[in-house]
Write a protein that binds this DNA or RNA. Structure first.
Length: 920
RNA sequence: GGGUCUGUAGCUCAGCUGGUUAGAGCACCGCCUUGAUAAGGCGGGGGUCACAGGUUCGAGUCCUGUCAGACCCA
């Protein structure tokens, strides 16, 4: 035993074993940041784009959709940014000039809310100052994560929607809309705090219990068959909104019952219509019970007819609406378009008009039409309204109703829905053009076209004003004393833009009306609007503020790439603003990806993930596994659909990574004594197996480049993975081990294989570079290259190895069939403990005639090498392939471990085979 | 409830215009190796292609419905 060991050690020194310092263990978590620092020190991104620019390369612009500057980078954000980077890097290596300007969406309620939540009662200018600070903090956090993920771009000069110049361009885009007569002003209900005298956002609402009078009110039908005979009954907890009633909504799915209802105690009798699903609760609450004739009535029969308003000399239109439910009420819903969002939409759809006779303080105006109510606060008006209804005989019943009701978070007063002037973009004027443009755009996947068409076809006019502080101001003015006659003027807006170009729109909030009037040559007393623009105008103007502005970019962009929710979001807002502004879509291709979901394909909610201790932050994963693993994971998934995610999937990806890495490592190890420039052999001197692996490389190269071109990163992943695992690891490297280790260092066979390996290594690292950004660069460096791999281009598929008549592939495929057959038999023998390693087997192969294999099998050495056996006998006398295994009698060569006939027959080296004796 | 989609081995994915016993990698099990060794090789088990109908000589692949999931809307 000790003898044997000593002996083998002796010969081990005579072998050419692989040598490399390329570490087996990647230790990405520590090494990646070092490499990143190095890249940033040499400004690798700049080098890449400069180099392509110098080459006069064609331009490819992927325009970054700005993530919201709030929160950490979670897996969904990471998926998006890495996909973008895969596109950019693969296009760059395909020879394109690919400048990438990342951006952030900075304005908006979520940030303002965080700021105001902490400290209430701040001045607008202070809210904006703190909001900006908040946004910038998260921009830094997110930027760090994106860089760490190996995403290349102009991180020093990203675009921020809070930049003064960006804001100015938003205002100019607005001016462009005004110029084309697309902006108008109209009333729309908003959540209104009469305590704070301001509109509120959903997020500023707190729910508290409150008791209100809930009343059942009858509306006598005044047209159609039932005119003058029966009445609809509505139920409401806001009696004060009845003066603004303009409609009654029914549910088309409900069956309605018309009957004479009699009150059990008073004996009062009424002919009423109630939805059947709500009949029981109606009886219980009002005491009215059907007594006598009953008749089924359908909602459709009543639709379009009218009912008399119980308090005013006017009618209320009967309509159908989906928001009518059987949860409460009567199945007939009081609709006041000026006092509710459902009501508003229903009002628009059914042409009901709009009334909102309430002022800032929550008091009725003259418009209410009922003398007793004018000047009265709406909540104080409730009992009066009820009294009036009672007088008119319209009140069926009343109760005190305890419910959860929205309150203002600041003033703690209850909230009302009240209509105020809002600004809108007239979508009908640009809808057709937008639809035309949609069809000129390439949508990936193709069904994206249907999705955006659906949203564009159905979207109502775009309400672009917000009663908020943290945003781009709506550049509109009001003449002195005329708050209802806004001055919407493109020229004025442009002047505002010019004034804020350098100093930012804080000016709008810091200077007073007089200052602005003076600057813009407006009459004294002119006031400015305190609204801001919808943030979708901000991000939707990026083609103006970024694509048109930056010299290295252009409009339309070649590609927009976001998650599917952006069909209604950014893709649409950008399309609408671009069509309005310049008449064409801002993009040539739009690609969407799915959302990250858990392994059961259910959506992941943030609170859930926290509860279950399932981290979703990208940082958790790149800090534990490395950015390359995360990127490899991105490349492996089907981004068109939901992307399942689970920490176990990560471990699986890490396993794939290890295989790829080890393949690179063994190739480097085998190339340690090889200089490709001086020691490469000519193609004609390559052996069969070398030609085969280069033919495989030819296919792999072609497939990968093609797949990158079609953004099919998954295919690249699968192709590279299988090439590494099967073609290289399990076949080529295994088969060539003997010649690599045992043949003379400078032997032709060995140099031939090194020639092939060098080409494989070089192509492989380039092909994987867009995905494994750190690892490919590291491997490239170990090959002795000075410049980063990311400055390289994809390898060209070598036409010398395209399959042709003399191709090695068909021969190798036949040999692989023999191999499979032999391995099965060997395995059988191994399980029976007849033999251990392959090299101990004596293989007797009976094969049918096979023209492809004729010549190759005559070459005993090549056949044995390919099949990795030492003692092979081939007989050609069978119809089917049969392999027979026994243990060989040949002695084992102490150096190459093959069992060869020649072992023991060489005098000078009795323990070696002929080949090894020669080498030694 | 409506619109747009998705559903193939434990997991990630292939399966082109319908045509032989549905493929690969990983994971799993067993064996070998210890000269890629916190590696490598070989073999094996595992799928009623979500479910139910239909068209067809023939369907994972076309049609209809059901179920489940995602996004958007209500």
């Amino acid at each position: 035993m000790s003898d044997k060991k000593k002996q083998s050690n002796t010969y081990k020194d005579s072998l050419n074993l692989p040598q490399t310092d390329f570490p087996m263990r990647a230790n990405l978590v520590e090494r990646e940041p070092q490499r990143l620092e190095n890249w940033e020190n040499q400004d690798l991104y700049r080098q890449i784009v400069d180099q392509r620019k110098a080459e006069n390369a064609p331009t490819f612009i992927l325009h970054d959709g700005p993530p919201f500057a709030n929160g950490d980078v979670h897996m969904g954000t990471a998926l998006n940014k890495v996909l973008k980077d895969l596109v950019i890097k693969s296009r760059s290596m395909a020879g394109y000039y690919t400048p990438f300007i990342p951006g952030w969406d900075c304005h908006g309620l979520p940030i303002e809310f965080k700021v105001v939540e902490k400290t209430r009662g701040l001045e607008p200018a202070e809210i904006r100052r703190r909001s900006e600070e908040y946004a910038r903090r998260f921009i830094d956090i997110q930027r760090h994560s994106f860089r760490r993920l190996g995403v290349f771009g102009d991180w020093q000069n990203p675009y921020l929607t809070l930049d003064p110049s960006y804001e100015a361009d938003v205002i100019r885009t607005f001016a462009s809309l005004v110029e084309k007569d697309l902006v108008y002003c109209s009333k729309k209900p908003v959540l209104w705090s009469f305590g704070a005298q301001t509109a509120l956002a959903e997020a500023e609402v707190e729910y508290e219990d409150r008791t209100d009078p809930a009343i059942f009110v009858k509306f006598p039908i005044s047209s159609g068959d039932l005119a003058g005979q029966s009445s609809l009954v509505i139920w409401t907890t806001t009696p004060w909104t009845l003066p603004a009633n303009l409609g009654i909504a029914l549910q088309s799915r409900f069956e309605y019952l018309r009957a004479t209802f009699t009150h059990a105690e008073s004996g009062r009798s009424e002919d009423l219509i109630i939805a059947r699903p709500l009949l029981e609760s109606f009886i219980a609450k009002t005491g009215f019970r059907p007594s006598g004739k009953e008749q089924a009535v359908s909602a459709a029969d009543l639709e379009g007819h009218t009912a008399d308003h119980p308090l005013l000399d006017r009618t209320s239109k009967i309509i159908l609406a989906d928001f009518v439910t059987d949860e409460a009420g009567t199945g007939a819903v009081h609709v006041a378009p000026g006092h509710g969002s459902d009501d508003y939409v229903a009002g628009l759809q059914n042409d009901l008009g709009l009334l909102s006779p309430v002022d800032d303080l929550g008091k009725f105006t003259d418009e209410v039409g009922i003398e007793q109510l004018v000047g009265l606060h709406v909540f104080k008006a409730n009992p009066i309204v009820i009294e009036l209804l009672e007088e008119k005989g319209a009140l069926i019943a009343r109760e005190d109703y305890l419910h959860s009701y929205p309150h203002c978070w600041r003033s703690k007063t209850p909230i009302i829905f009240r209509s105020v002037e809002q600004f809108f973009v007239r979508i009908d004027s640009i809808r057709e053009k937008a639809l035309e443009e949609i069809d000129k755009v390439e949508w990936l996947p193709h069904w994206g076209r249907n999705r955006i068409r659906g949203t564009v076809e159905s979207r109502p006019d775009w309400c672009i004003s917000r009663q908020r502080t943290w945003g781009v101001p709506l550049p509109v003015f009001f003449p002195a004393g005329k708050p209802d006659e806004p001055i919407v003027d493109a020229g004025l807006a442009r002047k505002v833009a010019d004034l804020t170009e350098d100093q930012g729109t804080n000016l709008w909030f810091e200077k007073d009306d007089a200052w602005w009037a003076e600057q813009l040559d407006l009459p004294a007393g002119t006031t400015r609007c305190h609204d801001t623009l919808d943030v979708w105008i901000d991000s939707g103007s990026s083609h103006v503020a970024v694509l048109d502005k930056r010299p290295e970019l252009h409009t339309p962009a070649d590609l927009y790439l976001e998650a599917t929710d952006q069909h209604r979001g950014w893709f649409q807002s950008s399309l609408m603003l671009s069509v309005a502004h310049r008449g064409i879509a801002p993009y040539k291709t739009v690609m969407t990806h799915g959302f990250v979901v858990d392994k059961d394909r259910k959506k992941i909610s943030k609170s859930d993930a926290k509860k279950k201790g399932k981290p979703m932050d990208a940082a958790h994963f790149y800090n534990q596994y490395g950015a390359d693993i995360l990127r490899l994971w991105v490349s492996s998934v089907d981004w068109q659909n939901e992307v399942p995610f689970d920490e176990n999937l990560f471990k699986q990806t890490a396993d794939t990574y290890r295989r790829i890495r080890n393949t690179l490592r063994i190739l480097l190890g085998n190339l340690h004594d090889f200089d490709a420039d001086t020691q490469s052999v000519e193609n004609k001197d390559l052996t069969l197996i070398d030609r085969w692996i280069l033919e495989r490389l030819h296919v792999v190269t072609r497939e990968c480049i093609e797949a990158y071109g079609k953004y099919e990163f998954r295919k690249v992943f699968n192709t590279l993975n299988q090439f590494c695992a099967v073609d290289l690891s399990s076949l080529y490297i295994d088969i060539t081990k003997d010649r690599m280790y045992c043949e003379a260092t400078d032997s032709a066979k060995r140099r031939a294989t090194q020639t092939a390996m060098a080409r494989v290594f070089e192509s492989l690292t380039r092909l994987m570079a867009p995905i494994l950004v750190y690892t490919a660069d590291e491997a490239w460096e170990f090959l002795g290259r000075e410049k980063s791999i990311h400055l390289q281009k994809f390898p060209a598929a070598d036409p010398a190895f395209a399959s042709g008549d003399k191709a090695a592939t068909p021969v190798v495929e036949e040999l692989l069939k023999l191999r499979t057959c032999i391995q099965q038999e060997i395995e059988d023998a191994r399980q029976k403990k007849l033999i251990g390693s392959n090299l101990e087997a004596r293989v007797s192969l009976d094969i049918p005639e096979n023209a492809t294999l004729e010549t190759i099998l005559d070459d005993q050495a090549t056949a044995e090498e390919f099949l990795i056996v030492s003692d092979l006998t081939i007989k050609r006398n069978r119809d089917t392939l049969v392999a027979t295994i026994s243990k060989t009698d040949n002695g084992k060569c102490a150096r190459c471990w093959r069992h060869e006939k020649t072992v023991g027959k060489i005098e000078s080296h009795s323990d070696l085979c002929e080949r090894c004796a020669d080498v030694v």
